[in-house]
Design a binder for these strands. Structure first.
Lengths: 201, 201
DNA sequence: CGCATTTTTGATACACGTCAATCTCCGTGG
DNA sequence: CCACGGAGATTGACGTGTATCAAAAATGCG
C-alpha cells in the first residue's frame, strides 16, 4: 500500500524541489512558508506560473490526473501537510473552498505584475508577511517576513533581480523593512515589516 | 421559484456587464467569446484579475458563497451556459476538472505579463484565436480572432493602450493579422491569424 | 450628416533592463 | 585560524523600450 496520503506534515528547506512536473503524487496544503509553481513551456523552459502561501492548496490536479501539472519549489522554509485529510465538511465543499482561494490568489499574483517596480515589490512583501510569532512584544502591528532569493522575487514580479535588490534596499532605507539580527550580522532575507502609513494597498 | 439555474444559453454583446461583484447568481461556462474578470481593490478601483475564454468556468465561487467574488464583463460577443448542468460525471470530478483548467488559465494570464510588448500582444492574440468556422476553405492552418478593445488588451497585458495599438499595427504589417472585410471596410477587431513560422508559442 | 468614442500615430521623457564591478556570506580545505 | 573560491546580493553607469502627452484619424451611433 502506498503511504503518500498517510504521510504527516513535511518540512522543506528554501530552494528545495517539492515535486516535479508530470510526476505522480498527492496534493498538499501550505501551512507556512511560500512555494513557487512553474510550468514547462513548449520550448522546454521552466517559467514562473503561480505562488502559494499559507493556507493555499497545491497539486490538487493530481486528484483528477494522478500527476502534477506544475513543478513546485520552496521559496522559503515551509511546512506542508497532505490534503484533503480529516475534512469534516463534504469533499466537494472543501474543493470549492480551495478553488475560490486559488482564484483570489491568482488575481493577487496578476496584480503583482502591474504598476511601478517599487509598488510591486512592496505588495509582494506584504503578501508574504505574516504576523510575527516571536517578536510580538513591542509594536502590535509589526509583521515578519522571510523574503525569497532576489531572482525568485524578480520572476514573480516580472522585474530583474537588480531592480528587486534596489527596491528592497529602498524599503530598508525608508524604514519599512528592518533586518533581523542573527549571530551579530543582519539577515538579508528575514525582516520585520513596519507598514508606516502606506495606503492599505 | 428562481429560474437562474434553469436558464438556457445566454448571449452577451461586447462590453456588456455579465455580473457584478458581491451580487448573488450562478456559475457559467464560456462557450465562445472572451470575458474579463475584475476584482474590487480595497481603494475601490476595479482592476483586471483574470481572463476566461472558451471552455472556462466563471463564477464557481457562488456554489460556496452564494455571491460573485469578481465582476465579469464581455470582452467580445460571447455565449455562456449555466454550469454545472447535466454533468454525467460526479460533481466533484467536474469541479476538479474546472479547477485544473482554471489553474492553467491563470498561469497563461501571468505569462501574458512578462517579456517584451510585442511578444505579450502576440501571445494574447494566439490565446484568443479560434479555429475559424467560416473561412476554412483556403489555408488549413488559419485561425480567426476577435480582439477586445485596445484598453482591455492593455489591462490584460499590463501595457498602455497606445503600445498595444502599435503592436497590433506591427502584427498587421508583418502579415500575421489580416483584417476581415465587412461592408467594404476593414474591421479593426476581427482578424484572420496567420501563424507564420513563429515559435509554437 | 454631425458628434462622441475609440484608435492610430508622433515626439519626448523616464523607469527599468543590461552590463559590469564590488561586496557579503558560507563552506572547504590547508 | 586564516586563505581561498563560489554563489548570491548590492551598487553604479549607461542604453533602450515603453509610458506619457498630444493631435489627428477612423469608427460607430443617433
Amino acid at each position: 500500500m502506498y503511504g503518500e496520503a498517510q504521510l504527516g506534515p513535511q518540512r522543506f528547506a528554501a530552494g528545495y524541489a517539492i515535486y516535479a512536473h508530470s510526476t505522480p503524487g498527492a496534493a498538499w496544503r501550505v501551512v507556512s512558508g511560500s512555494v513557487r509553481l512553474d510550468r514547462r513551456e513548449p520550448n522546454g523552459e521552466q517559467n514562473f506560473a503561480n505562488l502559494a502561501i499559507m493556507g493555499d492548496v497545491i497539486g490538487a490536479e493530481t486528484l483528477l490526473l494522478g500527476y502534477y501539472s506544475f513543478t513546485a519549489t520552496a521559496l522559503t522554509p515551509c511546512l506542508l501537510v497532505p490534503w484533503p485529510v480529516g475534512c469534516r465538511a463534504p469533499a466537494s465543499e472543501s474543493l470549492l473552498h480551495s478553488m475560490a482561494k486559488a482564484e483570489r490568489r491568482a488575481a493577487e499574483v496578476i496584480a503583482l505584475r502591474c504598476g511601478q517596480a517599487a509598488d510591486r515589490v512592496r505588495h509582494l512583501v506584504m503578501l508574504l508577511a505574516q504576523r510575527s510569532d516571536v517578536v510580538s512584544n513591542e509594536d502590535s502591528a509589526d509583521l515578519q517576513v522571510v523574503l525569497p532569493p532576489r531572482q525568485d522575487m524578480a520572476d514573480i514580479t516580472a522585474l530583474t533581480l537588480e531592480t528587486v535588490s534596489r527596491m528592497v534596499s529602498r524599503l530598508r532605507h525608508s524604514g519599512m523593512l528592518k533586518p533581523v539580527v542573527r549571530r551579530g550580522c543582519e539577515s538579508n532575507s528575514t525582516f520585520v515589516v513596519r507598514n508606516l502609513g502606506q495606503a492599505p494597498f
